[in-house]
Design a protein around this nucleic acid. Sequence first.
DNA 1: GGCAAACTGTACAAATTTGTCAAGATCACG
DNA 2: CGTGATCTTGACAAATTTGTACAGTTTGCC
Lengths: 160, 160
Amino acid sequence: MKLSSPEEYGLRCLLRMARAGGSVTIPELSEAEGLSEANVAKVMRRLRLAGLVESVRGPAGGYRLARPPERITAAEVLQALGERLLTADFCRKHAGLPEICVHAEDCSLRALLAAMQGALDSLLSATTIKDLLGNERQATVQIAARLAGVSSAPRAFLPG
Amino acid sequence: MKLSSPEEYGLRCLLRMARAGGSVTIPELSEAEGLSEANVAKVMRRLRLAGLVESVRGPAGGYRLARPPERITAAEVLQALGERLLTADFCRKHAGLPEICVHAEDCSLRALLAAMQGALDSLLSATTIKDLLGNERQATVQIAARLAGVSSAPRAFLPG
DNA sequence: GGCAAACTGTACAAATTTGTCAAGATCACG
DNA sequence: CGTGATCTTGACAAATTTGTACAGTTTGCC
Protein backbone atom coordinates (compact mmCIF):
# COMPACT_ATOMS: atom_id res chain seq x y z
CA MET A 1 0.00 0.00 0.00
CA LYS A 2 1.54 3.23 -1.09
CA LEU A 3 0.73 6.59 -2.57
CA SER A 4 0.64 6.58 -6.37
CA SER A 5 3.05 8.89 -8.19
CA PRO A 6 0.41 11.43 -9.20
CA GLU A 7 -0.81 11.59 -5.61
CA GLU A 8 2.63 12.32 -4.27
CA TYR A 9 3.64 14.76 -6.96
CA GLY A 10 0.35 16.57 -6.77
CA LEU A 11 0.73 17.14 -3.05
CA ARG A 12 4.28 18.34 -3.52
CA CYS A 13 3.36 20.75 -6.28
CA LEU A 14 0.44 22.19 -4.33
CA LEU A 15 2.68 22.73 -1.33
CA ARG A 16 5.18 24.52 -3.53
CA MET A 17 2.49 26.73 -4.95
CA ALA A 18 1.09 27.54 -1.53
CA ARG A 19 4.52 28.51 -0.30
CA ALA A 20 5.23 30.60 -3.38
CA GLY A 21 2.07 32.55 -2.75
CA GLY A 22 1.22 33.72 -6.26
CA SER A 23 1.46 32.26 -9.72
CA VAL A 24 3.90 29.45 -10.48
CA THR A 25 4.93 28.04 -13.87
CA ILE A 26 5.54 24.46 -14.90
CA PRO A 27 9.28 25.08 -15.40
CA GLU A 28 9.48 26.53 -11.91
CA LEU A 29 7.73 23.55 -10.34
CA SER A 30 9.88 21.22 -12.43
CA GLU A 31 13.04 22.83 -11.17
CA ALA A 32 11.91 23.02 -7.57
CA GLU A 33 10.70 19.43 -7.31
CA GLY A 34 13.21 17.74 -9.58
CA LEU A 35 10.51 16.40 -11.88
CA SER A 36 10.44 16.68 -15.67
CA GLU A 37 8.30 19.46 -17.09
CA ALA A 38 6.15 16.94 -18.92
CA ASN A 39 5.48 15.11 -15.71
CA VAL A 40 4.59 18.26 -13.82
CA ALA A 41 2.29 19.28 -16.66
CA LYS A 42 0.46 15.97 -16.46
CA VAL A 43 -0.14 16.30 -12.74
CA MET A 44 -1.13 19.95 -12.90
CA ARG A 45 -3.64 19.16 -15.60
CA ARG A 46 -5.45 16.78 -13.29
CA LEU A 47 -5.41 19.29 -10.47
CA ARG A 48 -6.92 21.83 -12.84
CA LEU A 49 -9.64 19.45 -14.01
CA ALA A 50 -10.44 18.79 -10.37
CA GLY A 51 -10.82 22.50 -9.76
CA LEU A 52 -8.01 22.77 -7.24
CA VAL A 53 -5.84 25.09 -9.34
CA GLU A 54 -6.46 27.57 -12.13
CA SER A 55 -4.24 28.14 -15.11
CA VAL A 56 -3.30 31.19 -17.16
CA ARG A 57 -1.81 30.70 -20.58
CA GLY A 58 0.71 32.74 -22.45
CA PRO A 59 3.77 34.57 -21.18
CA ALA A 60 3.49 35.56 -17.53
CA GLY A 61 1.04 32.70 -17.21
CA GLY A 62 1.17 29.76 -14.84
CA TYR A 63 -0.90 28.13 -12.16
CA ARG A 64 -2.38 29.45 -8.97
CA LEU A 65 -4.44 27.83 -6.23
CA ALA A 66 -8.16 28.00 -6.91
CA ARG A 67 -8.77 28.54 -3.19
CA PRO A 68 -6.71 29.68 -0.20
CA PRO A 69 -4.54 26.89 1.27
CA GLU A 70 -6.68 26.53 4.37
CA ARG A 71 -9.61 25.60 2.17
CA ILE A 72 -7.91 22.80 0.24
CA THR A 73 -7.90 19.51 2.11
CA ALA A 74 -5.49 16.63 1.65
CA ALA A 75 -8.54 14.45 1.03
CA GLU A 76 -9.50 16.53 -2.00
CA VAL A 77 -6.02 16.35 -3.45
CA LEU A 78 -5.77 12.58 -3.13
CA GLN A 79 -9.28 12.17 -4.45
CA ALA A 80 -8.37 14.24 -7.51
CA LEU A 81 -5.22 12.31 -8.32
CA GLY A 82 -5.91 8.74 -7.33
CA GLU A 83 -8.48 6.19 -6.38
CA ARG A 84 -10.02 5.34 -3.07
CA LEU A 85 -9.22 2.13 -1.24
CA LEU A 86 -12.69 0.69 -1.79
CA THR A 87 -14.03 1.44 -5.25
CA ALA A 88 -17.44 0.54 -6.58
CA ASP A 89 -16.02 -2.11 -8.89
CA PHE A 90 -13.90 -3.77 -6.23
CA CYS A 91 -15.95 -6.96 -6.34
CA ARG A 92 -16.17 -6.96 -10.11
CA LYS A 93 -12.66 -6.47 -11.21
CA HIS A 94 -11.03 -9.13 -9.13
CA ALA A 95 -10.06 -12.65 -9.81
CA GLY A 96 -12.45 -15.28 -10.94
CA LEU A 97 -16.03 -15.88 -10.18
CA PRO A 98 -18.48 -13.02 -10.42
CA GLU A 99 -20.52 -14.28 -7.50
CA ILE A 100 -17.43 -14.48 -5.33
CA CYS A 101 -18.49 -11.35 -3.53
CA VAL A 102 -21.48 -13.04 -1.95
CA HIS A 103 -19.06 -15.06 0.10
CA ALA A 104 -18.44 -13.97 3.62
CA GLU A 105 -14.69 -13.61 3.27
CA ASP A 106 -14.86 -11.06 0.52
CA CYS A 107 -17.51 -9.03 2.16
CA SER A 108 -15.48 -8.80 5.31
CA LEU A 109 -12.56 -7.65 3.22
CA ARG A 110 -14.82 -4.86 2.02
CA ALA A 111 -15.55 -4.03 5.64
CA LEU A 112 -11.85 -3.73 6.38
CA LEU A 113 -11.20 -1.54 3.36
CA ALA A 114 -14.12 0.68 4.25
CA ALA A 115 -12.82 1.07 7.78
CA MET A 116 -9.35 1.90 6.52
CA GLN A 117 -10.73 4.48 4.14
CA GLY A 118 -12.82 5.93 6.92
CA ALA A 119 -9.81 6.28 9.20
CA LEU A 120 -7.88 8.01 6.45
CA ASP A 121 -10.78 10.28 5.55
CA SER A 122 -11.05 11.49 9.13
CA LEU A 123 -7.46 12.54 9.00
CA LEU A 124 -7.25 13.78 5.43
CA SER A 125 -10.42 15.81 5.32
CA ALA A 126 -9.39 17.62 8.50
CA THR A 127 -5.92 18.38 7.19
CA THR A 128 -5.43 21.30 4.82
CA ILE A 129 -2.58 22.45 2.65
CA LYS A 130 -2.03 25.27 5.09
CA ASP A 131 -1.46 22.76 7.89
CA LEU A 132 1.43 21.35 5.90
CA LEU A 133 3.26 24.56 5.13
CA GLY A 134 5.68 24.48 8.04
CA ASN A 135 8.50 22.03 8.55
CA GLU A 136 7.98 18.39 9.38
CA ARG A 137 7.62 18.90 13.11
CA GLN A 138 5.22 21.81 12.74
CA ALA A 139 3.12 19.89 10.25
CA THR A 140 2.96 16.92 12.58
CA VAL A 141 1.65 19.17 15.34
CA GLN A 142 -0.94 20.73 13.05
CA ILE A 143 -2.24 17.38 11.84
CA ALA A 144 -2.46 16.04 15.37
CA ALA A 145 -4.36 19.13 16.46
CA ARG A 146 -6.82 18.68 13.60
CA LEU A 147 -7.43 15.09 14.48
CA ALA A 148 -8.08 16.05 18.08
CA GLY A 149 -10.66 18.51 16.81
CA VAL A 150 -8.71 21.43 18.20
CA SER A 151 -8.52 24.49 16.01
CA SER A 152 -4.88 25.36 15.59
CA ALA A 153 -3.57 28.56 17.12
CA PRO A 154 -6.65 30.77 17.19
CA ARG A 155 -5.52 34.30 16.53
CA ALA A 156 -6.89 37.70 15.64
CA PHE A 157 -7.63 38.74 12.10
CA LEU A 158 -4.86 40.47 10.31
CA PRO A 159 -6.05 43.30 8.08
CA GLY A 160 -4.99 42.94 4.46
CA MET B 1 -3.66 4.69 -3.11
CA LYS B 2 -4.70 1.11 -3.10
CA LEU B 3 -3.85 -2.27 -1.69
CA SER B 4 -1.26 -4.16 -3.71
CA SER B 5 -2.25 -7.52 -5.15
CA PRO B 6 -0.25 -9.59 -2.66
CA GLU B 7 -1.83 -7.64 0.20
CA GLU B 8 -5.33 -8.33 -1.00
CA TYR B 9 -4.78 -11.95 -1.92
CA GLY B 10 -2.94 -12.66 1.31
CA LEU B 11 -5.83 -11.34 3.37
CA ARG B 12 -8.30 -13.35 1.34
CA CYS B 13 -6.32 -16.57 1.67
CA LEU B 14 -5.85 -16.13 5.41
CA LEU B 15 -9.58 -15.57 5.84
CA ARG B 16 -10.26 -18.74 3.87
CA MET B 17 -7.87 -20.69 6.00
CA ALA B 18 -9.33 -19.36 9.21
CA ARG B 19 -12.81 -20.32 8.08
CA ALA B 20 -11.69 -23.74 6.99
CA GLY B 21 -10.28 -24.37 10.43
CA GLY B 22 -7.60 -26.90 9.66
CA SER B 23 -5.14 -27.48 6.86
CA VAL B 24 -5.74 -26.06 3.40
CA THR B 25 -3.91 -26.82 0.16
CA ILE B 26 -2.90 -24.48 -2.64
CA PRO B 27 -5.35 -26.07 -5.10
CA GLU B 28 -8.14 -25.57 -2.59
CA LEU B 29 -7.30 -21.91 -2.07
CA SER B 30 -6.92 -21.48 -5.81
CA GLU B 31 -10.38 -22.88 -6.43
CA ALA B 32 -12.02 -20.99 -3.60
CA GLU B 33 -10.56 -17.59 -4.47
CA GLY B 34 -10.47 -17.88 -8.23
CA LEU B 35 -6.71 -17.32 -8.36
CA SER B 36 -4.18 -19.44 -10.24
CA GLU B 37 -2.32 -22.00 -8.19
CA ALA B 38 0.98 -20.36 -9.03
CA ASN B 39 -0.29 -17.06 -7.75
CA VAL B 40 -1.60 -18.54 -4.53
CA ALA B 41 1.72 -20.31 -4.04
CA LYS B 42 3.57 -17.03 -4.38
CA VAL B 43 1.46 -15.31 -1.78
CA MET B 44 1.49 -18.23 0.64
CA ARG B 45 5.24 -18.34 0.45
CA ARG B 46 5.50 -14.80 1.72
CA LEU B 47 3.06 -15.52 4.50
CA ARG B 48 5.15 -18.49 5.50
CA LEU B 49 8.39 -16.48 5.47
CA ALA B 50 6.65 -13.92 7.67
CA GLY B 51 5.73 -16.65 10.12
CA LEU B 52 1.97 -16.22 9.76
CA VAL B 53 1.35 -19.68 8.33
CA GLU B 54 3.13 -23.02 8.47
CA SER B 55 3.43 -25.49 5.64
CA VAL B 56 3.49 -29.25 5.45
CA ARG B 57 4.83 -30.92 2.34
CA GLY B 58 3.85 -34.14 0.77
CA PRO B 59 0.43 -35.78 0.43
CA ALA B 60 -2.05 -34.63 3.06
CA GLY B 61 0.08 -31.52 3.35
CA GLY B 62 -0.97 -27.91 3.00
CA TYR B 63 -0.93 -24.73 5.00
CA ARG B 64 -2.30 -23.91 8.40
CA LEU B 65 -2.32 -20.74 10.48
CA ALA B 66 0.74 -20.41 12.68
CA ARG B 67 -1.44 -18.85 15.39
CA PRO B 68 -5.14 -18.75 16.21
CA PRO B 69 -7.07 -16.16 14.15
CA GLU B 70 -7.55 -13.84 17.11
CA ARG B 71 -3.78 -13.52 17.41
CA ILE B 72 -3.10 -12.52 13.81
CA THR B 73 -3.65 -8.82 13.16
CA ALA B 74 -4.44 -7.18 9.85
CA ALA B 75 -1.39 -4.99 10.45
CA GLU B 76 0.87 -8.05 10.49
CA VAL B 77 -0.60 -9.38 7.28
CA LEU B 78 -0.17 -6.13 5.38
CA GLN B 79 3.30 -5.68 6.80
CA ALA B 80 4.25 -9.14 5.56
CA LEU B 81 2.96 -8.63 2.04
CA GLY B 82 3.56 -5.00 1.24
CA GLU B 83 5.30 -1.83 2.19
CA ARG B 84 4.37 0.88 4.60
CA LEU B 85 3.28 4.31 3.47
CA LEU B 86 6.42 5.99 4.76
CA THR B 87 9.54 3.91 4.15
CA ALA B 88 13.04 4.72 5.25
CA ASP B 89 14.15 5.45 1.71
CA PHE B 90 11.22 7.72 0.89
CA CYS B 91 13.45 10.74 0.57
CA ARG B 92 16.14 8.89 -1.34
CA LYS B 93 14.26 7.17 -4.04
CA HIS B 94 12.26 10.08 -5.33
CA ALA B 95 12.77 12.47 -8.11
CA GLY B 96 15.82 14.56 -8.48
CA LEU B 97 17.98 16.25 -6.00
CA PRO B 98 19.28 14.27 -3.06
CA GLU B 99 19.06 17.26 -0.75
CA ILE B 100 15.44 17.86 -1.70
CA CYS B 101 14.34 16.41 1.59
CA VAL B 102 15.79 19.26 3.59
CA HIS B 103 13.09 21.45 2.09
CA ALA B 104 10.07 22.17 4.18
CA GLU B 105 7.57 20.87 1.64
CA ASP B 106 8.98 17.39 1.56
CA CYS B 107 9.32 17.10 5.26
CA SER B 108 5.73 18.08 5.74
CA LEU B 109 4.79 15.42 3.22
CA ARG B 110 6.60 12.99 5.48
CA ALA B 111 4.53 14.28 8.37
CA LEU B 112 1.33 13.61 6.45
CA LEU B 113 2.41 10.11 5.46
CA ALA B 114 3.42 9.33 9.02
CA ALA B 115 0.05 10.51 10.29
CA MET B 116 -1.76 8.43 7.68
CA GLN B 117 0.26 5.37 8.61
CA GLY B 118 -0.45 6.00 12.26
CA ALA B 119 -4.17 6.22 11.68
CA LEU B 120 -4.09 2.97 9.74
CA ASP B 121 -1.92 1.25 12.33
CA SER B 122 -4.39 2.10 15.08
CA LEU B 123 -7.07 0.36 13.13
CA LEU B 124 -5.11 -2.51 11.66
CA SER B 125 -3.21 -3.57 14.75
CA ALA B 126 -6.46 -3.71 16.71
CA THR B 127 -8.22 -5.78 14.06
CA THR B 128 -7.61 -9.51 13.90
CA ILE B 129 -8.44 -12.19 11.38
CA LYS B 130 -11.07 -13.43 13.76
CA ASP B 131 -12.82 -10.06 13.66
CA LEU B 132 -13.23 -10.51 9.92
CA LEU B 133 -14.70 -13.98 9.89
CA GLY B 134 -18.36 -12.98 9.84
CA ASN B 135 -20.17 -11.28 7.00
CA GLU B 136 -19.57 -7.70 5.97
CA ARG B 137 -21.92 -6.18 8.52
CA GLN B 138 -20.59 -8.26 11.37
CA ALA B 139 -17.01 -7.46 10.44
CA THR B 140 -17.83 -3.76 10.33
CA VAL B 141 -19.22 -3.97 13.85
CA GLN B 142 -16.18 -5.87 15.11
CA ILE B 143 -13.73 -3.39 13.63
CA ALA B 144 -15.64 -0.45 15.04
CA ALA B 145 -15.67 -2.09 18.47
CA ARG B 146 -11.92 -2.60 18.31
CA LEU B 147 -11.29 0.97 17.38
CA ALA B 148 -13.43 2.11 20.30
CA GLY B 149 -11.24 0.01 22.55
CA VAL B 150 -14.13 -2.24 23.49
CA SER B 151 -13.32 -5.90 23.70
CA SER B 152 -15.81 -7.80 21.61
CA ALA B 153 -18.08 -10.31 23.31
CA PRO B 154 -16.14 -11.20 26.44
CA ARG B 155 -16.87 -14.79 27.20
CA ALA B 156 -15.67 -17.62 29.37
CA PHE B 157 -12.82 -19.89 28.41
CA LEU B 158 -13.79 -22.97 26.53
CA PRO B 159 -11.89 -26.07 27.56
CA GLY B 160 -10.04 -27.75 24.71
C1' DG C 1 1.59 40.27 -37.45
C1' DG C 2 5.43 37.60 -35.58
C1' DC C 3 7.83 35.71 -31.80
C1' DA C 4 8.54 33.57 -27.58
C1' DA C 5 6.76 31.90 -23.20
C1' DA C 6 3.57 29.22 -21.35
C1' DC C 7 -0.26 25.76 -20.99
C1' DT C 8 -2.89 21.42 -23.48
C1' DG C 9 -3.45 16.92 -25.03
C1' DT C 10 -2.40 12.65 -27.12
C1' DA C 11 0.60 9.08 -28.29
C1' DC C 12 4.44 6.41 -27.23
C1' DA C 13 8.46 4.35 -24.43
C1' DA C 14 10.32 2.71 -20.06
C1' DA C 15 9.83 0.78 -15.62
C1' DT C 16 7.40 -1.61 -12.26
C1' DT C 17 4.11 -4.77 -10.82
C1' DT C 18 1.61 -8.76 -11.54
C1' DG C 19 0.87 -13.34 -13.16
C1' DT C 20 2.57 -17.79 -15.25
C1' DC C 21 5.62 -21.59 -16.12
C1' DA C 22 8.61 -25.27 -15.38
C1' DA C 23 11.80 -27.86 -12.87
C1' DG C 24 12.88 -29.30 -8.23
C1' DA C 25 12.30 -30.98 -3.31
C1' DT C 26 9.66 -33.35 0.31
C1' DC C 27 6.86 -36.76 2.17
C1' DA C 28 2.94 -40.30 3.08
C1' DC C 29 1.67 -44.51 1.59
C1' DG C 30 1.64 -48.90 -0.30
C1' DC D 1 11.69 -47.95 -2.86
C1' DG D 2 8.56 -45.93 -6.18
C1' DT D 3 4.62 -43.02 -7.00
C1' DG D 4 1.77 -39.25 -6.69
C1' DA D 5 0.34 -35.29 -4.09
C1' DT D 6 2.13 -31.35 -2.32
C1' DC D 7 5.04 -27.35 -1.36
C1' DT D 8 9.50 -24.39 -3.28
C1' DT D 9 11.95 -21.50 -6.16
C1' DG D 10 13.72 -18.82 -9.81
C1' DA D 11 13.08 -17.30 -14.44
C1' DC D 12 10.08 -15.46 -17.73
C1' DA D 13 5.77 -13.18 -19.90
C1' DA D 14 1.89 -9.98 -19.56
C1' DA D 15 -0.35 -6.02 -17.77
C1' DT D 16 -0.33 -1.80 -15.52
C1' DT D 17 1.73 2.30 -14.10
C1' DT D 18 4.86 5.82 -14.82
C1' DG D 19 7.53 8.97 -17.53
C1' DT D 20 8.65 11.30 -22.08
C1' DA D 21 8.04 13.37 -26.62
C1' DC D 22 5.92 16.15 -29.60
C1' DA D 23 2.69 18.74 -32.01
C1' DG D 24 -0.72 21.93 -30.79
C1' DT D 25 -3.06 26.37 -28.66
C1' DT D 26 -3.12 30.71 -26.23
C1' DT D 27 -1.41 35.22 -25.21
C1' DG D 28 1.62 39.19 -23.99
C1' DC D 29 4.89 42.04 -26.19
C1' DC D 30 7.44 44.30 -29.79
